[in-house]
Computed example of a mutant assay.
Amino acid sequence: GTSLAYPLISMGAHVSDIPNHQTARKTSLKTRNDVASFGNFGYELNLLDFDTEMGEEVRQYLNFYKRNRKLIQFGDFYRLESPFESNAAAWMVVSKEKDEALVGHFTILAEPNPGYNKKVILKGLDSEKKYLVNDEFEAYGDELMSVGIVFPQPERYFSKDSETQDFKSRIFKLKEIK
């Protein structure tokens, strides 16, 4: 709700330790990083506790944020799906030139048999421009703002090896194709 009154550049968004000190929930490092990426990104945990694999994962997230910092801090922010009205949250940031965007989609609790037609409708794109989404497929802005991004099969994003299927995230990077 803070984003209703303040721009992303003014919000601290930090990855905390698990289990969470207030709820005792265990949320994946990926989801914690994906959520924190939409603000002034940082870590509130003991980096000395990381093993080599976790340290490399953190390094990748830091590099992702550095590559997208200008977009996140100065782009136009859109709330796409409210966690107060559904089991998911989604938001996006679009550059002033409308040549790139970053979309975050977050499933709060795992759903039994979620189906294959989940999607998120985007906003703020240039309807005439063609975008490459996650280096996987191409679509025009008008298509993404009317049909949306239809999610592939759930197992592509959700690991059956994780401790919980709750609190999952997806990040989509859009770049204009010139």
Rank of each mutant, 00 (worst) to 15 (best):
S82V: 05
L102N: 02
A139S: 14
D126W: 05
S127R: 11
E143Y: 09
A101K: 02
T2I: 14
D17W: 05
Q153H: 12
R59T: 09
I18E: 06
L174G: 05
R69Y: 11
E57M: 12
K173H: 12
N20V: 01
L132G: 01
S146Y: 02
T52D: 08
Q60F: 02
Y6A: 04
V120R: 06
R170V: 04
D161A: 11
G124I: 13
K178E: 12
F38G: 04
T2P: 01
F158D: 04
I177P: 02
A89T: 03
H105K: 14
K70S: 13
N63K: 15
N113L: 13
R32Y: 01
V120M: 07
K130G: 04
K175W: 13
K119Y: 12
M54Q: 11
D166P: 05
E128Y: 08
V94A: 10
V93M: 07
V150N: 07
H21E: 01
S10T: 10
A110K: 06
D161M: 08
A139F: 10
F151L: 14
Q165F: 04
V147H: 12
G148Y: 10
G148H: 09
L45R: 15
V94N: 05
L62W: 00
F77A: 01
D49L: 15
L132M: 15
E100H: 15
L132Q: 12
Q60A: 10
Q73D: 10
E155Q: 08
Q165C: 00
L48H: 13
V120T: 15
F167Y: 15
Q73A: 09
K66E: 14
Y65R: 14
D126H: 09
S3H: 06
K30V: 03
A89Q: 07
L132A: 08
D99R: 13
M92Y: 09
S95Q: 09
K130A: 10
D49N: 15
I177G: 02
L48W: 10
E138C: 10
K175R: 15
K129V: 10
S10P: 00
H105E: 06
T27R: 09
Q153F: 11
G115Q: 08
Y65M: 07
R69S: 06
K26A: 05
R59D: 10
A139L: 10
D76H: 14
H105V: 15
Q22C: 01
R69F: 08
L122V: 05
A13L: 00
G42S: 10
F74C: 02
L48D: 15
L144R: 03
K119P: 03
I108W: 04
P152A: 11
K175G: 01
K30Q: 07
S169F: 03
N68P: 03
D166W: 03
K175L: 14
L71Y: 11
V120K: 05
